[in-house]
Design a protein around this nucleic acid. Structure first.
Length: 277
DNA sequence: CGACACTCCTGATGGC
DNA sequence: TGCCATCAGGAGTGTC
């Protein structure tokens, strides 16, 4: 389940390998994933364009192409991107194969077929609703506080997952950041006191940065562009650790369901309400 | 606009 | 061993 650190790890693997290469075309067995242009036109519109750079916005990967066009990919739940030669043995669950003129290819594998592809003039037409990049200088405490204040009733975790307040945080890193900040996931977002917002702001940045250092979390089947697993699953403090002792206080980590998502937290460290001051 | 249910997808897993 | 229910969950859409 690629979130910001996994997508960033993939980007860092792809950028040096693909920059300067020219697309020959794309072969897709799941055209429903192609949102723009019409699926049958994707290959011809892509062919002949070269990769100028690869960027990331939240969990979206943005390929800047020659001719002022952008290939935008979202891996959703189960997508992975594999750099291969066309003569390499097949990989499982490959839905789209982007071929390059030098005989290499980028294979988009996606068990659950939820990944999405766009070829557009302006990537903001796809990513425009995203909130602030949490690792950019524009992500300030004040900006986070303002975003949280817009949700008087929604649980803080839901706001983090919503992508409009902060871009790129998914289920794993929302739980990790809230654990680090010692904030209960169901707390109404707007109820956070300034010191709590400050802790959350700091926690989001540190958790994401550490996960990037560890090349992402491989809980299920996430792999980077070389097929390598990440190592951050060994550094998780809350996510997936139900009944294990909290590394801060020893209390068993609890698992609840929030809006259909597994949510892990320490019932002692992460206070359900703001303590009296 | 906010809040929430629903939908898409299929492999892995656990119970019987 | 087979079968079924459940789970994984990002994000767009629809409804109130």
């Amino acid at each position: 389940m690629p979130e910001l650190p996994e997508v960033e790890t993939i980007r860092r693997g792809l950028a040096p390998a693909l920059s300067g290469k020219t697309f020959a075309g794309v072969d897709t067995s799941w055209p429903r994933a192609v949102k723009a242009p019409a699926p049958e036109r994707l290959s011809t519109e892509l062919a002949g364009r070269c990769v100028e750079s690869i960027e990331r916005a939240g969990k979206f990967l943005l390929f800047r192409l020659s001719g002022e066009r952008w290939l935008v990919l979202h891996l959703r739940m189960s997508g992975s991107l594999l750099l291969r030669r066309s003569t390499d043995p097949p990989d499982r669950f490959v839905r789209h194969v982007f071929g390059f003129t030098d005989g290499t290819e980028l294979r988009f594998a996606d068990v659950r077929k939820m990944g999405v592809i766009w070829l557009v003039d302006d990537p903001r037409s796809v990513t425009g609703a995203l909130g602030t990049e949490p690792l950019s200088a524009r992500f300030t405490r004040a900006r986070l506080a303002a975003a949280l204040a817009r949700h008087p009733k929604a649980p803080v975790k839901s706001v983090l997952l919503g992508q409009r307040a902060v871009a790129g945080v998914g289920n794993i890193y929302a739980d990790e950041a809230l654990w680090e900040a010692r904030i209960h996931p169901v707390r109404p977002a707007a109820s956070l006191a300034p010191p709590e917002v400050a802790r959350l702001h700091r926690a989001i940045r540190s958790v994401l940065r550490e996960a990037i250092c560890n090349r992402g979390t491989s809980k299920a089947d996430y792999v980077d562009a070389s097929g390598e697993k990440g190592a951050h699953q060994f550094a998780l403090r809350a996510y997936g650790r139900a009944a294990e002792p909290c590394t801060r206080c020893g209390t068993p980590i609890e698992r609840i369901r929030m809006g259909g998502r597994g949510t892990y937290f320490c019932p002692r460290c992460q206070t359900p309400a703001q303590l009296p001051r």
